[in-house]
Design a binder for these strands. Structure first.
Length: 885
RNA sequence: GGGCGCGUAGCUCAGCGGGAGAGCGCUCGCCUCACACGCGAGAGGUCGAUGGUUCAAAUCCAUCCGCGCCCACCA
């Protein structure tokens, strides 16, 4: 009887018709929601909040796939699993986007004023801020959307103010006048972590200052000649004999006649260039410090937009910094004071991580800083004593080194969009921080208060994310239950910017680490290993891919690459296509099972052990191995291994052998018999679907529902181990069958007409009898016990795992291909055998190698010898069949 | 200038002390009653180079070559 095609399952899986339906169902049933439940263990991941301005890119897709897989598995394992989503207000990024929009309307934000501008940004946020949320849902993310947070929510804003005030009152936040990283395009200060250093081709210009007393010159070198307009001194190393006589003298500035003292300072490297440094305290961090120590004055010669300020000689005023660079060089040349040709010079220059402009070290009045000295220690300890574990562990060193070298963090930004610094000033010179808007000065009672105009670095609010989203500073049940969170999943690019700061602030403000594990995943690249970028045109858009191949396919393609050691994850359309094919395979294998299995009656149950066939016992045993490998892989965040194990088991074992072995049995007999013959397969399929669900949520749910085994696979329990299914005997016995079949297939080569007959000894024939149909179907040869007389001339001898069989071939059989393959294999076998014999003949090996190694080598020699003999035999027989010598 | 990582089949990578592996691609044959998004059978590698340790090295050590990344206030 034929297997009836399952009526409601078309031959191709259609993700588009499936995914949204299930996502809505999950949402409606509230399956993503999580509340503290003392009867369960907590599991919590906070989503690294994407920028509200952002669209879902492939990097998000990777991180989200990993987080969703972890969360879904934890949920199935019985944890109270919370994946907490949210978005980041992303100070500069968002402000720039809205400014650009305004520019198209011909409006400058400064014209509209702070309040109107902020209103406009909020409007923008209301309109577009949810876009990325919708995109995340398309990926299948099982976030608790009822808890969606935004870094500028009322609650989180309060958390920011409370954190600031607490640190301010504790002396950890201070205001100071120090040189900072200034982005002239965004017109704001940046922290050190927001500056990206890049090698740039520039020029090293060496020029001279004349000594004021006319006794000579001092030569200095610089890559930014324009800064000489702000020079206030010359520094040399104290023990540099070339210059020791000059210390204390002055040089005269060529353009404005200022006298610049020559000072001595240890920071000068006598071996670099001329050994004398022009000191520009307002435009170089080193020079700033030299000036601090030696008392040189500061002279700021740049405006906020990096044009030359009025403090410089008139002829340079208003010039852009690059124009000024050229003009100053030109004027020096005109003076004959450029002593060397300007030399091409490759050096490292800081760039803004947002707009990529060159950063200008600048002295821009007072800025707010976080003093990191007291925060570092606990953060270092937490990692060293294992309270936080990095995956892969090598990131711990990077983290520790960064912390040890960390300097105070500039947190004030000269922007409007963001958390305004909660500090107020009164005309009497008082300054204080408050969590709520004050009405009068705390010290003198005056109502004439002015709030600091700056806002906080975006990362100041995101560093609070793991606990502010759980209700901090209130002592909420959420915070109590879910904090510290389980694992933070992120790329390495924000390890310092974000991860390290969460750890420092969490320890300081909450008193415990924010997460127990940090999973640093690699970077998705194109198939050629290049970074994806718009300019290269090699960007893979996750939304496109979901549309074309389905979310499951994209997720599987990403997960199969993502191990903690994998730094580069090359993704290609072909890879996603292969994953799509896998989803289709799952679908079709299920169709096949449901062709005989009577679905709908709940989770499949296994028949009693003695009723199981050999291939069923084999499949159950292999399934246990699969389960174990998947568990251990996922416990170690080795998604690549888990995905590959599932792929191999499902495709190469379950489908290629488990499903095929008893096709006949499942298509013969009464519906009842066919159902019984499908029980083991259905059982294994149902469980394998559960193992696949965290990575491929949609297709697994769509198929799993047909079992009628529960509300949703999302809340079905994670499969438990069944040690009693591990069956070495069945694995060996069925392994023999597989080898036998493969041997026949190899000899048979091309499926031609005529009858192939597999002739075996009586004992083996009896053993294979229960598998007769499977063997015949899979090998394409009929099985028969040995007959009294030798089979007629046309046969090939087989030896499988030391057991003999003969394959009788039909008249028209062309032994050519098989013959060629066997000859090649014989050659290989002989060369291996030679190697093995040489090894065993060597006294050193037998005497010094481990006894097991020698035994193994002896067995290997025997196997190879036998194999070679069989091959010689086969070749002779095949030759006689073809009539060639 | 420090630190980390990588060079294995055409491509992307696994293996990390004892018989060279996977996926994709390629070749050949098959529309075999779940799936051509499929089935079966194959081809393809001096494991970057040199030297060392070892009975034994893709695997450990050293040096070199090539590539990538992170950190850094050398004008």
């Amino acid at each position: 009887m034929e297997i009836e095609p399952t009526r409601d399952m078309p031959p191709q899986y259609d993700p588009a018709a499936t995914e949204q339906r299930w996502y809505r169902a999950w949402l409606e049933r509230g399956l993503f929601q999580s509340e503290p439940d003392p009867s369960k263990e907590p599991f919590c991941i906070v989503l690294p909040p994407p920028n509200v301005t952002g669209a879902l890119h492939i990097g998000h897709a990777l991180g989200h796939t990993l987080m969703d897989s972890l969360t879904r598995r934890a949920r199935m394992q019985g944890f109270e699993a919370l994946w907490l989503p949210g978005t980041d207000h992303a100070g500069i990024a968002t402000q720039v986007v809205v400014e650009r929009e305004l520019a198209r309307e011909g409006v400058d934000r400064r014209e509209m004023g702070r309040e109107a501008f902020l209103e406009r940004v909020w409007q923008w946020k209301e309109q577009y801020g949810d876009r990325i949320v919708v995109q995340m849902q398309g990926l299948g993310n099982s976030c608790d959307w009822d808890r969606l947070r935004f870094t500028m929510d009322e609650g989180l804003s309060r958390a920011v103010r409370v954190a600031f005030v607490r640190m301010y009152d504790d002396g950890l936040i201070y205001r100071g006048e120090r040189i900072i990283n200034w982005c002239p395009k965004d017109r704001t200060a940046l922290s050190d972590s927001e500056v990206e250093h890049e090698e740039v081709d520039g020029e090293l210009v060496t020029f001279r200052y004349a000594l004021s007393d006319g006794s000579g010159f001092v030569d200095v070198a610089t890559t930014r000649v324009e800064t000489m307009l702000g020079d206030t001194g010359i520094a040399v190393h104290p023990s540099d004999e070339r210059y020791s006589a000059l210390v204390g003298k002055t040089v005269t500035h060529p353009f404005d006649g200022r006298e610049l003292p020559i000072v001595a300072d240890d920071a000068v490297d006598p071996s670099f260039a001329t050994g004398a440094v022009k000191v520009t305290p307002a435009h170089d961090p080193n020079d700033f410090e030299i000036a601090e120590r030696t008392g040189l004055p500061r002279l700021n010669i740049l405006n906020a937009d990096a044009t030359v300020a009025d403090t410089a000689p008139e002829e340079f005023r208003g010039l852009d910094r690059y124009e000024a660079r050229a003009r100053v060089a030109e004027r020096l040349r005109a003076l004959g004071w450029v002593v060397e040709e300007e030399r091409p010079y490759r050096h490292s220059v800081g760039h803004c991580y947002r707009c990529h402009s060159e950063i200008e070290p600048w002295l821009s009045g007072k800025q707010w800083f976080v003093a990191v000295e007291r925060l570092k220690g606990p953060a270092i300890e937490a990692s060293e004593d294992g309270r936080i574990r990095f995956h892969p562990p090598r990131w711990q060193n990077a983290y520790l080194e960064w912390l040890r070298g960390l300097r105070d963090w500039n947190i004030s930004r000269q922007l409007w969009w963001g958390h305004r610094i909660p500090v107020w000033y009164c005309p009497n010179g008082h300054e204080f921080a408050a969590t709520e808007d004050p009405t009068e000065c705390r010290e003198c009672g005056t109502a004439d208060l002015e709030q600091d105009p700056d806002v906080l670095d975006t990362w100041f609010s995101s560093q609070l994310w793991p606990y502010s989203t759980l209700g901090w500073p209130e002592e909420t049940p959420d915070l109590d239950f879910f904090y510290p969170t389980t694992v933070l999943v992120t790329g390495y690019e924000i390890l310092y910017l974000w991860v390290a700061r969460m750890i420092m602030s969490g320890l300081y403000l909450v008193g415990d680490v924010p997460f127990r594990n940090v999973l640093i995943h690699g970077l998705v690249r194109d198939a050629a290993g290049r970074k994806m970028s718009k300019s290269l045109g090699n960007v893979i858009d996750p939304l496109d891919m979901i549309g074309q191949y389905g979310a499951d396919a994209l997720r599987f393609a990403l997960a199969r690459m993502a191990g903690p050691e994998q730094q580069n994850l090359p993704l290609s359309k072909e890879g996603i296509e292969a994953a799509r094919n896998f989803a289709n395979k799952i679908w079709n294998a299920s169709r096949q099972v449901f062709g005989s299995y009577r679905a709908g009656g709940g989770a499949p149950e296994l028949p009693a052990g003695e009723e199981r066939t050999l291939s069923e016992r084999w499949l159950l045993s292999r399934h246990q191995a699969c389960l174990q490998e998947v568990d251990s892989a996922l416990d170690g965040y080795r998604f690549d291994e888990a995905a590959q194990t599932l792929h191999r088991f499902f495709w190469s074992e379950l489908c290629d052998w488990g499903l095929e072995a008893e096709k006949q049995r499942r298509s013969n007999g009464s519906p009842d018999e066919r159902h019984r013959a499908s029980l083991v397969l259905a059982w294994v399929l149902e469980r394998t679907l559960r193992l696949l669900h965290p990575v491929m949520p949609f297709v697994t749910e769509e198929v799993w529902q047909r079992f009628g085994a529960g509300d949703s696979i999302m809340v079905a329990p994670w499969p438990e181990g069944h040690d009693e299914h591990v069956d070495a005997e069945a694995e060996a016995a069925f392994g023999f069958v597989r080898d036998l079949v493969t041997n026949v297939r190899q000899i048979r080569g091309i499926v031609g007409g005529g009858e192939f007959r597999l002739v075996v000894a009586d004992g083996l024939a009896a053993e294979l009898e229960p598998l007769r149909e499977a063997v015949e179907r899979l090998s394409g040869a009929t099985l028969s016990p040995i007959v009294d007389t030798e089979p007629e001339g046309r046969f090939v001898r087989l030896s499988v795992r030391g057991r003999e069989a003969r394959l009788q071939v039909p008249d028209g059989f062309d032994p050519g291909p098989a013959l060629a393959a066997r000859r090649k294999r014989l050659e290989e076998t002989r060369s291996k055998l030679e190697g093995s014999e040489w090894k065993l003949a060597k006294d050193d090996f037998v005497a010094r190698a481990a006894p097991e190694a020698v035994d193994k080598e002896r067995r290997k020699r025997e196997d190879l010898t036998a194999e070679a003999a069989v091959l010689v035999d086969q070749i002779a027989l095949l030759e006689s069949l073809s009539g060639s010598p």
